[in-house]
Nucleic acid binder design. Structure first.
Lengths: 229, 229
DNA sequence: TAGTGGTCTAGACCACTAC
DNA sequence: TAGTGGTCTAGACCACTAG
């Protein structure tokens, strides 16, 4: 009795996993549960809301709450700065600038970021090392129309990622994961063979409607992103 | 005045993105915010709690609430059933069983799932098609010690995924994304060339401490997982 | 030890929607 | 239109922890 919302949540979860409340079936309403747990309705509400957020149950006004027929599995990944990713493993982080150039944004980039016809972009290629071993290759474009100060920033000592995090408070992003082949240049940087399969993350970010940067991060062969739920 | 928690959340988010509250800086406490928004403290609390869940702020009792210095970017992916993934695109789903065998679990699988030395496993290879085109290759192992009924299940018409979802109410999982090369067999199934880079998802699931299944899902070349935040 | 967030309550009103 | 979840309130007490 006098259960906390955590206890209520755990108990409901338990009943679902044990099969007591089968997939698709209706769960008692909040008032009934509050009575049976001896707590306030708000407490049950919070427990149920979190379960709904976790994708385990489905709630609809008037229709009540049901156990999801096929639970929506959600994987949640943290996308840290490379520096933290490496240092958290206890490895030593090193950064290096491979190349820097200012150019008109190529067509595919203009399309992807919805840029104007003659948009100027800063193109950086960088490498991130863990204990001296190639860890991640970074191919970055920065929109100079929106971030003209990037032109004068020094990217020889620290990566553009850290500069951007400090410069842009927050932004929305589109992120995608895929597999690619290492071409000759990438293979040289990552110290692997050309034709090796590599895991890549692409991310485009916008701030107040304007695209400010696009980056393709390529990990050394064999890299995995792992999570639990 | 009389703001809802959504309005409070939006306003705080706005102040952070606009740079009014810089990364690392202290945010007014709940009581102060409640007064300035003209709402109850619980309303501010809910807004702040959600922002903390989203990784934008950090809260500690007594120390107060701060804007995260480097926001933990979190990407959330839905991992749907392949069937839904395909049908949601408006494509026609088709399933096909490639092979079925019962064997001792190989060493790597026993290690990965912490199985006993002579564990029996059902090994299934399946294909999922979208509008007739190869979409996903499924290489699945089911632990027969825990799920002996899988031995008699019919996997010629529907995939093991749907059977498992119906059989196991809920389970914990470890999921990982990586890149691989298509070998000859995979290439034949996916109608691509051997040596093509492919995106793979591996998932192991446990129910009450016992591993019940391991699956490697391989998508056709060019597949992307995308999300926004 | 004092200040902050974490949680609970009892009650209220509202918004949606299945019937 | 009635039943269900969604949200807000004013107040209370508790748990943690920085100083």
């Amino acid at each position: 009795m006098k259960a906390t919302y955590r206890e209520v949540k755990a108990d409901i979860l338990c009943r679902i996993t044990k099969g007591q409340w089968a997939p698709g079936s209706l769960i008692p309403n909040e008032v009934e549960l509050a009575e049976s747990y001896g707590c306030a309705r708000a407490t049950v509400n919070r427990a149920m809301r979190e379960l709904a957020d976790d994708g385990l149950i489905e709630r609809r006004r008037k229709a009540g709450t049901r156990v999801r027929a096929s639970p929506v599995r959600q994987a949640r990944f943290d996308i840290p700065l490379v520096r933290s990713e490496i240092e958290d493993k206890g490895a030593e982080y090193r950064y290096s600038l491979v190349s820097r150039a200012i150019d008109e944004a190529p067509g595919w980039l203009r399309a992807r970021l919805q840029l104007g016809a003659d948009a100027q972009a800063l193109h950086l290629v960088c490498m991130h090392y863990a204990n001296g071993d190639p860890f991640q290759h970074e191919d970055r474009w920065i929109n100079l129309e929106v971030l003209p100060q990037a032109r004068d920033a020094d990217f020889t000592q620290t990566g553009p990622n850290e500069w951007l995090v400090a410069t842009i408070p927050f932004s929305t992003a589109e992120i995608s994961f895929s597999a690619a082949l290492a071409d000759k240049e990438l293979a040289d940087c990552l110290a692997c063979e050309a034709g090796a399969p590599v895991f890549t993350i692409e991310r485009a970010t916008w701030f107040e409607g304007d695209a400010n940067t696009f980056v393709r991060l390529t990990y050394r062969p064999g890299h995995r992103m792992t999570t639990r739920y």
